[in-house]
Design a protein around this nucleic acid. Structure first.
Lengths: 132, 132
DNA sequence: CTCCGTGCAAACGATTTGCACTATG
DNA sequence: CATAGTGCAAATCGTTTGCACGGAG
């Protein structure tokens, strides 16, 4: 099964990259609909899945929430805002956790790990100061 | 709003603790139903939510999957098996990641982080060796 | 012309909620 | 007794799927 570059696929990929954000399927759907009003949400889901399998985008499974998709394919971690649920990139040196440390613990064979930092983003901090 | 210790709440808490596992709401529902056949799944959900807010149990939001609930309230990380989705506790010294490292990155105020190690559990490793 | 991709609506799995009833404190 | 908690069914949310049609290669 070869990968066809359809109009919708192209727009989805372009808009995600252009956004420089970590969008959910429906956020991206809303954006893409402006260029292509008849596109279906199912198409957005299908393409995000396909594009992430093809390694052209990243898939982010943030705890307990909607999936988000990442324009940036490089290995990196994420931080997300508990208030507005926005997600940003994080660049910690990944060697801070030694692999041996992990292996020893429970007899699992380790395939990777996901580090998810949780906090409040700058703009929500500002709102809180004003609000209270 | 005070917290009443109902029969169902007590059983839910007891069975989760007894299991020593990281159960999902419906797994726990199946167990609890044996003691109390007329209990509803909604009650299990409601109580798990309340108990975790009260700090009596932990809530685990493993990426992209069902929530699981933790009998162990102490601060610790988790490892989960990509094959059978079972979750286990992990005891890494949490100081391996320095807080200053994190704060510097994006202007967020950090409230915590979640480390989720991914791997294959011992029993699934065994099955794979036999299977192939 | 071959199939991969699309739009639509319906199905799905996990979770939540409205409501009238029950039972704890 | 007041009102937190329950069971049930229906609703909701994010996501997936079946199907007939459309368009890329």
């Amino acid at each position: 099964m070869q990968l066809r570059m359809t109009n919708q696929r192209e727009i989805i990929l372009r808009e995600l990259r252009k956004s420089k954000r970590h969008l959910s399927a429906d956020e991206l759907y809303d954006i893409v609909k402006k260029d292509m009003p008849r596109i279906s949400l199912a198409t957005v889901y299908r393409n995000l899945e396909i594009l992430s399998e093809a390694g052209l985008i990243g898939k982010l499974e943030i705890s307990g929430r909607q999936k988000r998709f990442d324009y940036d394919v490089k290995d990196h971690d994420h931080i997300y805002c508990v208030v507005c649920h926005r997600v940003d990139n994080l660049n910690i040196q990944r060697e801070t956790l030694s692999r041996e440390d992990l292996v020893s613990t429970v007899g699992y064979s380790i395939t990777g790990y996901r580090l998810e930092v949780v906090g409040i983003c700058p703009s929500c901090q500002k709102k809180q100061n004003k609000g209270e």
